[in-house]
Amino acid sequence: MNIITVKDDRCFTGASATVRNMMDSEVFNCIEGLAFRIPDRNTRFNFEKVSMRKHLDIATVNTAARFKVENGKILEADLSAGGVAPVPLFLRETSRDRVSLSSQAHYATPGLYFDKSKEKGKPFAYHVAGTALTEVTLDRLRGTYSLDSVKIVHDCGTSINPLIDRGQIEGGLLQGIGWVTLEELKYSNETHALLSDSLATYKIPDIYFVPDEVQIEFLENLSENGGVFNSKAVGEPPFMYGIGTYFALLNALRECNPGIEPEYSTPLSTEKMLLLLEQSSN
């Protein structure tokens, strides 16, 4: 980056020329100052700014005059005037093809109401349903595990774009699994500072964490639901399928020790699982 000082001779060439001057060089410029020559004693000047706008402080017309006067004689005179005006632009092709350059839409889900005084009503048009079958293999010596498969049936109503919806379900599943198994907020006991404050200490799933098999089916459910084009939300609901992994791991732990009483807390990290397994062998 270049730090430059703009001198007066580069400024008074009109707004666009000034900007072009400064941005011209290859490197990105940063203006640190503006410098002006101080006029001598014989120079008189005046600046007039006319603005018709009430609240916006941009002048519609600017005028400036400078005179060099000696013994009552004007030796030099500079006058300049400038205005701001929009330059109309004619868009030939869009005009020829009569393309609208703006669009706007709003969807108000029909039939929603809620009476706060009675705590009754219909605040949501629909609920999203789905199910996930999760298979894991637990190494009872180490507390490590592999995610063998997750099979999901998800209800998106009528999917607007199955490719994108599938991606959202895959991503939601992975994020959910990360929350219940890996992602742990650790705070210092002394300073209470967050210790897992970077991706180096706060582990989130990477591609190696993806279950070996992920099968996703859309629920065939074409009943009216009130959503846009009869679709349903797909961003956050699939997140819940990650919880299946928590319970699958818990079941696997119980298989090793039917008596364990784990406290319900996530993430169920490998450390915690190892401790639970140890507890079982005592």
């Binding site: 599938r166 991606g167 959202q168 895959e170 991503g171 992975l174 994020q175 990360g178 991706l199 989130i204 799933p205 990477d206 591609i207 190696y208 993806v210």
Partner: peptide, 18 residues
Amino acid sequence: IFLPQKRKSCGILNCCSF
């Protein structure tokens, strides 16, 4: 093909499909 993740390049996906 997904090996580059092992080589410390883009490997973290939380929002994306894989």
